[in-house]
Write a protein that binds this DNA or RNA. Structure first.
Lengths: 127, 127
DNA sequence: TTAAAATATGAATAGCTGTTCAGATATTCG
DNA sequence: CGAATATCTGAACAGCTATTCATATTTTAA
C-alpha cells in the first residue's frame, strides 16, 4: 500500500521522515510537470533523438548547405534528407532560402547549439 | 549537380562566395558529427523524448520516491513506471536504493536538470 | 522546347518504442 | 507458514518513425 493513500505503517520500515500524508500528497501534485508541457518537451527532445538529424544540425552549425550537399556529406539519399529537413522546418529549427533550383538551409536558432554542446560534454564525462 | 563533386557553374546562380571545391569538400568532412557519437547523442535525447519519463524526472528532481508513489502521482500503472525506470537506470540517470519491500529512486545526475530547464525556457520563448 | 538537375511529397514498409498483461520474485505481517 | 505488498520481467500488441520508392514540380541548360 502506498503512503500516498493512507497513513500506513510504512514509516516503520522506511526510516526517512515523512510529512503528514495529506500534505505529502499535495506536495507531489504541485511538483509534477504538466502533461501538456511534458508532451511539448518530449516532442522537442525527440526531434533531437535521431542521429541523422543531429548530423544535419552539426553541418548547418558551420555553414548553410543545400539538400544535395547534405545528402552527399551524410551519405543519405536526397529524399531522406528532404524528409528530415521537413520536420526540422516544422519546429523552426532551420530556415531555408531558395536560390535557383537549390534550397539552402541554415540554423534558425542558436539555442540548439547550446543544448547540443551540453549533451556532447555530458557524454564525454560519463564515459 | 552538387558543388561537392566538381567545380560547376553553380556559383553563377548562387551568389555567395565559395572556396575551391576541393577545399570545400574537405571542410565538410571535418565538420560532420561522427556517426558513432551522433548515435550516442541521439540515444540520450531519445531517453528524454518521452512525456512520462520527463514527468518522472520532474518528480525525482524534488525528492526521492518509490515506484508505487510515482505510479499514483503520474496516473500510470506500476508496471509501466517500472519499465521506464529500467531504461532510466540503464543510462544512469537515476539511482535506486531498496528499503524493505520498496525501492526508492532519485536523480543520479544534475546535468539533466540543466538540460531540462534549458528546454523548458526555450519552449517558453518560441511560443 | 526538350532534357537534366534539385527538391518536395505521398504511399508503403520495416524497425523501434511504450504500454498492458500475466506471472515471477522478494519482503513484511499476522 | 500463508497472505498481502512492492517491484520486476518477458511476451504481445499498437502506435510511431525513418527510410525507400515512385512521382510531381520547378528551374536551369542546351
Amino acid at each position: 500500500m502506498s503512503n500516498l493513500k493512507i497513513a500506513s505503517t510504512d514509516d516503520l520500515e522506511c526510516d526517512i521522515p515523512h510529512p503528514l500524508e495529506t500534505e505529502h500528497l499535495a506536495e507531489l501534485g504541485q511538483g509534477v510537470l504538466e502533461p501538456e508541457k511534458a508532451q511539448r518537451m518530449a516532442e522537442f527532445f525527440s526531434f533531437l533523438g535521431d542521429p541523422n538529424r543531429l548530423r544535419i544540425l552539426s553541418l548547418l552549425a558551420q555553414e548553410e548547405l543545400c539538400v544535395c550537399d547534405l545528402a552527399i556529406a551524410l551519405t543519405m539519399s536526397e529524399s531522406a534528407v528532404s524528409h528530415q529537413l521537413r520536420t526540422l522546418r516544422a519546429i523552426r529549427l532551420v530556415r531555408y532560402e531558395k536560390r535557383g533550383r537549390k534550397v539552402f538551409y541554415r540554423l534558425a536558432d542558436h539555442h540548439i547549439l547550446n543544448l547540443y554542446q551540453a549533451v556532447a560534454e555530458h557524454l564525454d564525462e560519463i564515459d
